[in-house]
Protein backbone atom coordinates (compact mmCIF):
# COMPACT_ATOMS: atom_id res chain seq x y z
CA UNK A 1 0.00 0.00 0.00
CA UNK A 2 1.43 3.33 -1.03
CA UNK A 3 0.57 6.78 0.25
CA UNK A 4 -1.92 8.68 -1.81
CA UNK A 5 0.63 10.87 -3.59
CA UNK A 6 2.39 7.79 -4.93
CA UNK A 7 -0.70 5.79 -5.82
CA UNK A 8 -1.66 5.33 -9.43
CA UNK A 9 -5.19 5.96 -10.65
CA UNK A 10 -6.21 2.37 -10.11
CA UNK A 11 -4.99 2.37 -6.54
CA UNK A 12 -6.74 5.62 -5.81
CA UNK A 13 -10.05 4.14 -6.94
CA UNK A 14 -9.24 0.80 -5.29
CA UNK A 15 -9.73 -1.19 -8.47
CA UNK A 16 -7.44 -3.59 -10.31
CA UNK A 17 -5.73 -2.44 -13.50
CA UNK A 18 -7.96 -4.83 -15.41
CA UNK A 19 -11.09 -3.22 -14.05
CA UNK A 20 -14.02 -3.03 -16.44
CA UNK A 21 -15.83 0.22 -17.08
CA UNK A 22 -18.64 -0.79 -14.69
CA UNK A 23 -16.19 -1.55 -11.90
CA UNK A 24 -14.62 1.85 -12.31
CA UNK A 25 -18.01 3.54 -12.29
CA UNK A 26 -18.99 1.70 -9.14
CA UNK A 27 -15.69 2.37 -7.42
CA UNK A 28 -15.89 6.03 -8.33
CA UNK A 29 -19.41 6.48 -6.98
CA UNK A 30 -18.60 4.73 -3.74
CA UNK A 31 -15.21 6.29 -3.07
CA UNK A 32 -16.42 9.74 -4.08
CA UNK A 33 -19.29 9.42 -1.63
CA UNK A 34 -16.94 8.21 1.07
CA UNK A 35 -14.85 11.38 0.86
CA UNK A 36 -17.56 14.00 0.45
CA UNK A 37 -17.50 16.82 2.89
CA UNK A 38 -19.17 15.76 6.11
CA UNK A 39 -18.95 12.03 5.36
CA UNK A 40 -19.22 10.20 8.65
CA UNK A 41 -16.41 7.86 7.68
CA UNK A 42 -13.88 10.70 7.65
CA UNK A 43 -14.76 11.85 11.08
CA UNK A 44 -11.74 12.05 13.40
CA UNK A 45 -9.37 10.72 10.70
CA UNK A 46 -9.13 13.09 7.76
CA UNK A 47 -9.69 16.81 8.01
CA UNK A 48 -11.37 18.87 5.30
CA UNK A 49 -8.14 19.64 3.46
CA UNK A 50 -7.11 16.00 3.39
CA UNK A 51 -10.52 15.03 2.11
CA UNK A 52 -10.38 17.69 -0.63
CA UNK A 53 -7.03 16.36 -1.82
CA UNK A 54 -8.32 12.80 -1.88
CA UNK A 55 -11.44 13.88 -3.78
CA UNK A 56 -9.46 15.65 -6.45
CA UNK A 57 -7.27 12.57 -6.91
CA UNK A 58 -10.40 10.42 -7.20
CA UNK A 59 -11.94 12.77 -9.79
CA UNK A 60 -8.76 12.83 -11.83
CA UNK A 61 -8.45 9.04 -11.72
CA UNK A 62 -12.05 8.66 -12.82
CA UNK A 63 -11.67 11.16 -15.65
CA UNK A 64 -8.63 9.40 -17.07
CA UNK A 65 -9.80 5.83 -16.61
CA UNK A 66 -13.22 6.33 -18.18
CA UNK A 67 -11.84 7.90 -21.33
CA UNK A 68 -10.59 5.01 -23.49
CA UNK A 69 -7.90 7.12 -25.16
CA UNK A 70 -6.67 8.75 -22.00
CA UNK A 71 -6.69 5.43 -20.24
CA UNK A 72 -4.65 3.74 -22.95
CA UNK A 73 -2.15 6.60 -22.94
CA UNK A 74 -1.97 6.56 -19.16
CA UNK A 75 -1.45 2.80 -19.06
CA UNK A 76 1.30 3.01 -21.66
CA UNK A 77 3.09 5.78 -19.79
CA UNK A 78 2.72 4.04 -16.45
CA UNK A 79 3.79 0.73 -17.96
CA UNK A 80 0.49 -0.98 -17.36
CA UNK A 81 -0.54 -1.42 -20.98
CA UNK A 82 -2.38 -4.60 -21.87
CA UNK A 83 -3.21 -5.24 -18.29
CA UNK A 84 -6.83 -4.65 -19.00
CA UNK A 85 -7.09 -5.92 -22.54
CA UNK A 86 -9.85 -8.33 -21.65
CA UNK A 87 -11.82 -5.59 -20.00
CA UNK A 88 -11.95 -3.27 -22.98
CA UNK A 89 -15.66 -3.79 -23.47
CA UNK A 90 -18.05 -3.22 -20.61
CA UNK A 91 -19.20 -6.53 -19.15
CA UNK A 92 -22.67 -5.29 -18.38
CA UNK A 93 -24.14 -8.62 -17.34
CA UNK A 94 -26.45 -7.12 -14.81
CA UNK A 95 -27.89 -4.31 -16.88
CA UNK A 96 -28.69 -6.76 -19.68
CA UNK A 97 -30.33 -9.13 -17.25
CA UNK A 98 -32.47 -6.25 -16.22
CA UNK A 99 -34.31 -6.07 -19.53
CA UNK A 100 -35.85 -9.44 -20.12
CA UNK A 101 -38.76 -7.86 -21.92
CA UNK A 102 -36.43 -6.63 -24.62
CA UNK A 103 -34.92 -10.01 -25.32
CA UNK A 104 -34.90 -9.29 -29.03
CA UNK A 105 -33.27 -5.93 -28.71
CA UNK A 106 -29.64 -5.34 -29.35
CA UNK A 107 -27.64 -4.79 -26.23
CA UNK A 108 -27.01 -1.19 -27.19
CA UNK A 109 -30.68 -0.45 -27.56
CA UNK A 110 -31.52 -2.01 -24.25
CA UNK A 111 -28.91 0.13 -22.62
CA UNK A 112 -30.47 3.33 -23.82
CA UNK A 113 -33.62 2.72 -21.78
CA UNK A 114 -33.68 5.33 -19.06
CA UNK A 115 -35.29 3.31 -16.34
CA UNK A 116 -32.18 1.99 -14.67
CA UNK A 117 -30.30 3.78 -11.95
CA UNK A 118 -26.62 4.27 -12.66
CA UNK A 119 -25.74 2.92 -9.24
CA UNK A 120 -27.46 -0.44 -9.64
CA UNK A 121 -24.31 -2.19 -8.49
CA UNK A 122 -23.65 -3.74 -5.11
CA UNK A 123 -21.98 -1.85 -2.33
CA UNK A 124 -20.64 -5.05 -0.86
CA UNK A 125 -19.37 -8.30 -2.28
CA UNK A 126 -21.67 -10.99 -1.06
CA UNK A 127 -22.01 -14.27 -2.94
CA UNK A 128 -24.82 -15.34 -0.64
CA UNK A 129 -26.83 -12.28 -1.46
CA UNK A 130 -26.34 -13.14 -5.15
CA UNK A 131 -27.68 -16.62 -4.48
CA UNK A 132 -30.64 -15.20 -2.59
CA UNK A 133 -31.46 -12.92 -5.50
CA UNK A 134 -31.08 -15.64 -8.08
CA UNK A 135 -32.98 -18.38 -6.33
CA UNK A 136 -35.58 -16.89 -4.06
CA UNK A 137 -39.05 -15.60 -4.63
CA UNK A 138 -39.40 -11.88 -4.36
CA UNK A 139 -41.49 -10.50 -1.59
CA UNK A 140 -41.34 -6.89 -0.44
CA UNK A 141 -38.55 -7.58 2.03
CA UNK A 142 -36.43 -9.28 -0.63
CA UNK A 143 -36.86 -6.24 -2.88
CA UNK A 144 -35.80 -3.97 -0.05
CA UNK A 145 -32.74 -6.10 0.67
CA UNK A 146 -31.76 -6.03 -2.99
CA UNK A 147 -32.21 -2.26 -3.11
CA UNK A 148 -30.25 -1.53 0.06
CA UNK A 149 -27.43 -3.75 -1.05
CA UNK A 150 -27.02 -1.51 -4.07
CA UNK A 151 -26.89 1.54 -1.89
CA UNK A 152 -30.08 2.95 -3.38
CA UNK A 153 -32.69 4.97 -1.47
CA UNK A 154 -36.38 4.93 -2.36
CA UNK A 155 -36.43 8.50 -3.60
CA UNK A 156 -33.75 7.64 -6.16
CA UNK A 157 -35.95 4.86 -7.51
CA UNK A 158 -38.86 7.26 -7.53
CA UNK A 159 -36.82 9.73 -9.59
CA UNK A 160 -36.17 7.29 -12.42
CA UNK A 161 -39.44 5.33 -12.30
CA UNK A 162 -41.80 8.23 -11.52
CA UNK A 163 -43.56 5.97 -9.05
CA UNK A 164 -44.19 7.80 -5.80
CA UNK A 165 -42.09 6.98 -2.77
CA UNK A 166 -45.32 6.24 -0.95
CA UNK A 167 -46.22 3.43 -3.36
CA UNK A 168 -42.67 2.13 -3.43
CA UNK A 169 -42.73 1.88 0.31
CA UNK A 170 -46.10 0.10 0.21
CA UNK A 171 -44.57 -2.41 -2.18
CA UNK A 172 -41.69 -3.13 0.17
CA UNK A 173 -43.96 -3.33 3.18
CA UNK A 174 -46.57 -5.32 1.27
CA UNK A 175 -49.23 -2.88 2.29
CA UNK A 176 -51.47 -4.11 -0.52
CA UNK A 177 -54.55 -2.19 0.61
CA UNK A 178 -52.93 1.13 -0.11
CA UNK A 179 -51.77 0.05 -3.53
CA UNK A 180 -53.95 0.60 -6.64
CA UNK A 181 -55.30 -2.08 -8.99
CA UNK A 182 -53.05 -5.00 -9.75
CA UNK A 183 -52.26 -3.89 -13.26
CA UNK A 184 -50.63 -0.75 -11.85
CA UNK A 185 -48.84 -2.63 -9.13
CA UNK A 186 -47.32 -4.90 -11.74
CA UNK A 187 -46.05 -1.85 -13.60
CA UNK A 188 -44.60 -0.33 -10.42
CA UNK A 189 -42.86 -3.53 -9.41
CA UNK A 190 -41.46 -4.03 -12.89
CA UNK A 191 -40.11 -0.48 -12.89
CA UNK A 192 -38.66 -0.91 -9.40
CA UNK A 193 -36.92 -4.17 -10.32
CA UNK A 194 -35.51 -2.69 -13.51
CA UNK A 195 -34.25 0.38 -11.75
CA UNK A 196 -32.02 -1.68 -9.50
CA UNK A 197 -30.96 -4.11 -12.18
CA UNK A 198 -33.03 -7.14 -11.21
CA UNK A 199 -34.72 -9.57 -13.56
CA UNK A 200 -37.94 -7.58 -13.86
CA UNK A 201 -40.10 -10.34 -15.25
CA UNK A 202 -39.14 -12.85 -12.60
CA UNK A 203 -39.56 -10.30 -9.82
CA UNK A 204 -42.97 -9.09 -10.97
CA UNK A 205 -44.26 -12.63 -11.49
CA UNK A 206 -43.34 -13.76 -8.03
CA UNK A 207 -44.41 -10.52 -6.38
CA UNK A 208 -47.78 -10.44 -8.15
CA UNK A 209 -48.54 -13.97 -6.94
CA UNK A 210 -48.35 -12.61 -3.45
CA UNK A 211 -50.54 -9.63 -4.30
CA UNK A 212 -53.19 -11.84 -5.91
CA UNK A 213 -53.13 -14.32 -3.05
CA UNK A 214 -53.73 -11.54 -0.56
CA UNK A 215 -56.44 -9.90 -2.65
CA UNK A 216 -58.31 -13.15 -3.09
CA UNK A 217 -59.28 -12.96 0.55
CA UNK A 218 -61.38 -9.80 0.56
CA UNK A 219 -63.18 -10.55 3.79
CA UNK A 220 -60.06 -10.85 5.81
CA UNK A 221 -58.43 -7.91 4.15
CA UNK A 222 -61.44 -5.72 4.89
CA UNK A 223 -61.52 -6.60 8.51
CA UNK A 224 -57.83 -6.11 9.07
CA UNK A 225 -57.86 -2.82 7.19
CA UNK A 226 -59.79 -0.96 9.85
CA UNK A 227 -56.87 0.53 11.63
Amino acid sequence: MKPLDEQDHYEVLEVTPGAAFEDIERAYRLTRAAYTDGSMALYSIFNRDDAAVIRSRIDEAYRVLTDPQDRARYDAEAGIADRHAEAATPTATRPIDAFPLEVDCEESEARTLPAELPSAIEVIDDPDADIDEETSDFDGAALRRARLRRGVELDQISDVTKVSVKYLRCIEEEDFERLPASVYVRGFVTAYARAIGLDARRVSTSYMERVEAAREQPQRRLRSSSR
Binding site: M1, L4, E14, L30, T31, A33, A34, Y35, S39, M40, A41, L42, I45, F46, I54, V123, I124, D125, D126, R147, L148, R149, R150, G151, V152, E153
Partner: peptide, 27 residues
Protein backbone atom coordinates in the same frame (compact mmCIF):
# COMPACT_ATOMS: atom_id res chain seq x y z
CA UNK B 1 -30.89 3.52 5.10
CA UNK B 2 -28.82 2.72 2.04
CA UNK B 3 -26.56 5.57 3.11
CA UNK B 4 -25.85 3.73 6.37
CA UNK B 5 -24.88 0.64 4.42
CA UNK B 6 -22.40 2.60 2.33
CA UNK B 7 -20.68 3.67 5.53
CA UNK B 8 -19.01 0.24 5.79
CA UNK B 9 -17.47 0.69 2.38
CA UNK B 10 -16.28 4.18 3.30
CA UNK B 11 -14.77 3.06 6.61
CA UNK B 12 -12.80 0.32 4.85
CA UNK B 13 -11.61 2.77 2.23
CA UNK B 14 -10.45 5.19 4.91
CA UNK B 15 -8.64 2.30 6.64
CA UNK B 16 -6.81 1.59 3.41
CA UNK B 17 -5.88 5.19 2.78
CA UNK B 18 -5.04 6.03 6.38
CA UNK B 19 -3.69 2.86 7.99
CA UNK B 20 -2.65 1.10 4.81
CA UNK B 21 -4.48 -1.96 6.08
CA UNK B 22 -6.83 -4.04 4.07
CA UNK B 23 -9.97 -3.93 6.16
CA UNK B 24 -12.83 -5.98 4.78
CA UNK B 25 -16.48 -4.96 4.79
CA UNK B 26 -17.99 -8.14 6.12
CA UNK B 27 -21.61 -7.12 6.30
Amino acid sequence: TAEDIKLGFAVCSVCRKYFGIDAEYLG
